[in-house]
């Protein structure tokens, strides 16, 4: 079923692509308004980023860029709208981490390979947070305790199979532990998880660095480690998992993407526009204040990045034997 659908889409995409080839040559791209689809509701980080970028993109591309929220279906409706749009470069969107999370992909039948990445825009690394009075001073102490008492402590950060759940699963996998060693308590998001952490309902929270920053600055909570490649500028004292010998990074991301089979030349134009837009001082200030970390990768690197992420998540699923 899924396969038929894929083939059908591929055929549809090829047809549309060849149909629009002459126009793409005949006219300079872009020559009419561009629609930027946001699969999440207004006011969220994806929406805010898109709306902050749109005016600059308009200036660079010299055509109107209209931000459209296509919400519902847990992000499936909007992502589907991007993937199934006509691949002419006039309908693009911002895709999120969900497209590489195996449970979401299995449920929605939408996967990373249905998109042509334009630019990675935002990378929000995840942190391991504990309460200020937690018994562990360092991550190593926590890991030792966890190995001695598997299943004793509980973690949360989002819904079951949500983004931060995979941050935990990957962390456990690198430790050689199973899913049950640190059970996941499903909550409705980072704010709810931090509330549970404060109220003593859970022992560890896996949330984005920015989401816990207020509690940490107020002295109510502590970061044990970040799942970043290198130290995080705003908190230079917090070690990364890699430094501690654990090869695992995790971040939620926002990526500008077009439907598959969009012409590479068109994507190049868009990629350059995004690259320029994310450097605007106003946008940089906006993102800093929103605790969102700008990380631009060009279209080729973005493709490598998203494929690597999809493989890493699938590896976690296979090695832990997860069923969903």
């Amino acid at each position: 079923m899924q396969r038929h659908r894929r083939i059908f889409l591929k055929w549809l995409g090829l047809g549309a692509g060849s149909l629009f080839l002459p126009t793409a040559w005949g006219q300079r791209y872009p020559s009419r308004p561009i629609t930027l689809i946001v699969p999440w509701s207004p006011g969220g980080s994806t929406d805010l980023t898109a709306r902050a970028l749109a005016p600059t993109l308009e200036k660079i591309l010299k055509v109107p860029v209209q931000v459209v929220n296509r919400t519902g279906g847990g992000g499936a409706v909007g992502h589907g709208a991007i993937a199934q749009a006509r691949p002419d470069g006039y309908t693009i969107g911002i895709i999120t981490l969900e497209v590489v999370l195996p449970p979401w992909v299995a449920q929605t039948k939408i996967s990373a390979d249905m998109f042509s990445p334009i630019s990675l825009l935002v990378l929000n690394p995840v942190s391991i947070v504990v309460r200020k009075d937690a018994p562990w001073r360092t991550l190593q102490e926590f890991i030792d305790d966890l190995k001695r008492n598997p299943g004793r402590y509980k973690a949360s950060g989002t819904a079951k199979w949500g983004s931060y759940d995979f941050a935990r699963l990957g962390f456990l996998r690198t430790l050689g532990l199973k899913d049950e060693a640190l059970p996941w308590v499903p909550t409705q998001g980072a704010a709810a998880a931090l509330q549970e952490l404060m109220a003593g309902g859970i022992n560890v929270a896996f949330v984005a660095i920015g989401e816990a920053a207020n509690l940490v600055r107020a002295g109510e909570a502590r970061y044990l480690a970040f799942m970043t490649d290198s130290r995080f500028p705003a908190f230079p004292d917090i070690p990364t998992l890699k430094e501690l010998g654990l090869d695992w990074t995790f971040a939620s991301f926002l990526m500008a993407a077009a439907p598959k089979f969009t012409l590479p030349s068109v994507i190049d134009v868009l990629d350059k526009a995004f690259a320029q837009a994310v450097q605007e001082p106003e946008f940089v200030r906006f993102m800093q204040n929103a605790n969102l970390v700008i990380r631009h990768l060009d279209r080729k690197q973005s493709l490598v990045f998203i494929q690597e992420r999809a493989q890493a998540m699938n590896r976690v699923v296979q090695e832990l034997g997860l069923k969903f």
Binding site: G72, P103, Q107, K160, W161, Q188
Partner: peptide, 17 residues
């Protein structure tokens, strides 16, 4: 909310959320 699987969606992606 417990296992994060779709319930009663009748295979309809629009109903996932």
């Amino acid at each position: 909310p417990a296992l994060g699987n779709p319930r009663f969606t009748f295979g309809q992606v629009n109903l996932l959320g």
